[in-house]
Structures are given as C-alpha cells and as structure tokens.
Lab assay of single mutants.
Amino acid sequence: SSPEYTKKIENLCAMGFDRNAVIVALSSKSWDVETATELLLSN
C-alpha cells in the first residue's frame, strides 16, 4: 500500500477506530477520509 493510504489508515486508527474497520471503510469510500470517518462514526 502507498504511504498516502497508510497515513490515512494511521490517522483514523489514532482516533480510536479498529484498523480492519478503517481499511474496510476507506476502501468502500474510495479512500476519502471524510466519508469513511462518517461511516465509522455511524456504526
């Protein structure tokens, strides 16, 4: 995975989300952090 994707994963994990959930959310939202965060918060 690219450093850009890794940084997005790390940033969301730092907010307390599960790493696997973060990866699923990001990949399902075309790696857009904002919409992935909304998805994680709604679960």
Rank of each mutant, 00 (worst) to 15 (best):
S1T: 11
S1M: 14
S1R: 09
S2G: 09
S2P: 09
S2N: 15
S2M: 09
S2T: 13
S2A: 07
S2C: 11
P3M: 13
P3H: 10
P3Q: 14
P3C: 09
P3T: 14
E4S: 07
E4Q: 04
E4F: 03
E4G: 02
E4I: 14
E4A: 07
Y5F: 13
Y5E: 00
Y5K: 12
Y5M: 12
Y5T: 11
T6R: 11
T6G: 02
T6W: 03
T6P: 04
T6C: 04
K7P: 08
K7Y: 06
K7V: 07
K7S: 10
K8E: 10
K8D: 05
K8C: 03
K8H: 06
K8S: 07
I9S: 03
I9V: 06
I9L: 03
I9M: 01
E10R: 04
E10M: 05
E10D: 12
E10N: 05
N11L: 08
N11D: 06
N11V: 08
N11K: 14
N11H: 13
N11Y: 01
L12M: 07
L12F: 12
L12K: 01
C13L: 09
C13G: 02
C13W: 00
C13K: 02
C13H: 01
A14E: 11
A14R: 09
A14M: 05
A14W: 00
A14D: 07
A14Q: 13
M15S: 06
M15A: 06
M15D: 02
M15E: 05
M15Q: 12
M15V: 01
M15I: 14
G16M: 01
G16V: 00
G16N: 02
G16T: 00
F17Q: 09
F17V: 01
F17E: 08
F17W: 08
F17T: 04
F17N: 03
D18M: 01
D18A: 08
D18S: 10
D18Y: 01
D18W: 00
D18R: 04
D18N: 11
R19S: 08
R19N: 02
R19G: 01
R19T: 08
R19Q: 09
R19L: 05
R19D: 07
R19V: 05
R19P: 08
N20K: 13
N20Y: 05
N20I: 09
N20G: 11
N20R: 13
A21V: 05
A21E: 15
A21F: 01
A21T: 08
A21I: 05
A21D: 15
A21C: 02
V22T: 10
V22K: 10
V22M: 03
V22P: 04
V22E: 10
V22G: 09
V22I: 08
I23T: 14
I23L: 11
I23F: 08
I23C: 11
I23K: 14
I23G: 11
I23P: 09
I23D: 10
I23H: 09
V24T: 15
V24G: 15
V24Y: 10
V24D: 15
V24P: 12
A25K: 00
A25M: 03
A25Q: 03
A25G: 03
A25V: 00
L26D: 14
L26E: 11
L26P: 11
L26S: 07
L26M: 04
L26Q: 11
L26K: 08
L26T: 05
L26A: 09
L26H: 08
S27R: 14
S27H: 14
S27T: 15
S27I: 14
S27N: 11
S28K: 14
S28G: 07
S28E: 15
S28R: 12
S28L: 08
S28P: 02
S28A: 14
S28Y: 01
S28D: 13
S28N: 12
S28C: 08
K29H: 15
K29D: 03
K29Q: 12
K29W: 00
K29G: 12
K29R: 13
K29P: 05
S30L: 06
S30A: 14
S30M: 09
S30H: 09
S30V: 01
S30W: 04
S30E: 14
W31D: 08
W31S: 08
W31G: 14
W31N: 15
D32S: 06
D32H: 04
D32L: 01
D32C: 10
D32G: 03
D32K: 05
V33M: 13
V33P: 09
V33D: 03
V33N: 04
V33W: 02
V33Q: 05
E34K: 12
E34I: 04
E34F: 05
E34D: 13
E34C: 07
E34M: 07
E34S: 11
T35Y: 06
T35I: 10
T35D: 15
T35L: 15
T35M: 10
T35S: 15
T35Q: 15
T35G: 15
T35A: 15
A36P: 04
A36Q: 02
A36V: 01
A36E: 03
A36S: 07
A36T: 06
A36N: 01
T37H: 10
T37N: 13
T37M: 15
T37G: 08
T37W: 06
E38F: 02
E38L: 08
E38R: 13
E38Q: 15
L39I: 08
L39P: 05
L39R: 05
L39H: 13
L39G: 05
L40K: 06
L40H: 01
L40W: 01
L40D: 05
L40A: 05
L40Y: 00
L41H: 08
L41A: 12
L41Y: 09
L41R: 14
L41K: 13
N43F: 02
N43V: 07
N43T: 14
N43A: 11
N43Y: 07
